[in-house]
Design a protein around this nucleic acid. Structure first.
Lengths: 286, 286
DNA sequence: AATTGAGTTCCAAATAACGGAACTCTGTAT
DNA sequence: ATACAGAGTTCCGTTATTTGGAACTCAATT
């Protein structure tokens, strides 16, 4: 019943049917209530499609009568949330970028954490991420890229499952044990790589370890060849659970590096936590 | 009557009343029609506020009865477009980031242009932008940052006026003369710096020059100390008007650099145009 | 010329949004 | 302690928007 569930479900749908999803998938979409919700349903579908969908494609994926759907799309277009190509296919509109840009650059938590992850990047020379827990996913709020990374242009805003990412596991370890176990049961485990922790048991065992050390490792569990070292952080006052990580290709990493990074990542996480408390002390709103 | 106008107006409102706008400003906001539009009005206000507004702040800026506004906000929160802080202040929600991330990374034009601006960055070593024309503004679709830039963290998604930016002027020069003149009259000129072109006449004269050379200069017209060299590009088939630029602090720039960059920027723009046509040839939709 | 499929428009009926007023908190002054 | 004021929330009859089926247009095919 959670928004996150729904989005995860959509992602699955897409993963299972690489290309011609529109024609075959019999609309597994549960309609939301409220005018706004329905409009966002449509927007979601448009945003999540890899090829810009056309009217009929949408009609297949969204359980609405033609007339209704048409008006809903028209509204989205009128508001600038969706744009139409000359060939009548739909793409997400620029207004989204504008809104999100504001959301992002104004996010106080990100602003507060930024200097610390920047420093972490300078100390390690590798790609650094700042992630935030949102339901069963981690959403990347910021990243600083290592000099030359070919693949992966800006994860910012992207979401990944908690169970197979360094920051994700670090954040889970920050939850009360029961809550953590509850979530472990809710995941739909997918074995991204041979090392992915793909059962609640495996996951919870590792999280117990993370709780001891404060450090979490991603040993090519999400993408082959990619490892990372992460630490969690939280702030009860604001109800924030987040994490920072250093990521690098496995072949480039020496054991010395790992040990180094563990210290640095922990320092960064603690520094951010300290700043959060400090900021909340003097004046509560700003 | 344009969306862009409205947003520009909002920006003005903010610029004029730095801090306690909520209390004093008598809500210059014209309500949009349709449920969606009203919801987005609220979202806009939340996104554009510099401090997270509280319920009463919003009530002051949006001309709606308390009960109504409250429900509208509740809906936004339920949809994840807005989040509530513990102290009941509102911030834009993470769902926006997620939607925009998809919108951005899936944008075919951006993907197509990316290798070229990357190359431009490598050739110049300076910060490079890719901008798209949207109404009276340029929206930055991508940028690659020069090694150490302290200020300005990610312009991506941000909007600036056309008349005072390098890419903006370059794009205007791509319009038919009448259309260009029409827009020149629509701007609300603000003298950001002493060199800002602040009348239609000044602007049109410069644009005529840009039309000859294909190259546009920002001579600290938007921000003091910042100069840039830009070139416009367009594609009639898709109706896209865009531009690329190289930006750097004025003190660091030698005359040789400028001449160099002119050539490189033009090359990049032409290369992107060529790719667009090529992409549109083989198969029209993808 | 006829047929199909895609996209668009229309309007009575159903539904969701509206908005005024009443209510609940929480912190502050008496 | 008690009253007060301000912020935030809920309720419900009224009102306006959304709904969805059907009819219509346009372009490409047969």
């Amino acid at each position: 019943m959670d928004r996150v569930d729904e989005l995860a479900e959509q992602a699955d749908e897409r993963a299972q049917s690489p290309s011609n999803a529109a024609a075959t998938a019999p609309s597994r979409r549960k309609p939301e209530s409220g005018t706004l919700g329905k409009a966002l349903d449509v927007l979601d579908v448009i945003a999540l499609s890899e090829k810009p969908p056309r009217f009929t494609d949408l009609l297949g994926q969204i359980d609405q009568p033609r007339g209704t759907l048409h008006r809903q799309i028209s509204n989205l277009v009128a508001e600038g949330l969706v744009a139409v190509n000359p060939d009548h296919s739909y793409v997400p509109g620029l207004r989204l970028l504008k809104l999100a840009a504001r959301a992002w650059s104004g996010n106080t938590f990100r602003l507060l954490a930024e200097p610390h992850i920047r420093q972490l990047h300078e100390a390690t020379g590798e790609t650094v991420h700042l992630g935030l827990m949102s339901g069963l996913e981690v959403i990347y709020l910021d990243k600083i890229e290592s000099k030359q990374t070919v693949r992966m242009h800006s994860q910012v805003g992207n979401a990944s499952p908690l169970y197979c990412t360094g920051v994700g596991k670090a954040m889970l370890a920050r939850l009360p044990a029961e809550e953590c176990a509850k979530r472990a049961d809710q995941f739909e485990y997918f074995r991204h790589t041979p090392t992915t922790l793909h059962t609640p048991k495996l996951l919870l065992a590792e999280i117990e370890e993370i709780r001891q050390t404060g450090i979490s490792h991603d040993r090519e569990e999400h993408e082959p060849g990619i490892r990372c070292v992460a630490a969690g952080l939280s702030d009860d006052k604001q109800g924030i659970i987040a994490g920072v990580s250093v990521t690098a290709p496995a072949f480039r990493i020496a054991d010395d590096d790992i040990e180094n990074w563990q210290v640095l990542v922990l320092q960064a996480a603690r520094a951010i936590e300290r700043d959060m408390e400090a900021r909340l002390g003097p004046r509560s709103q700003e």
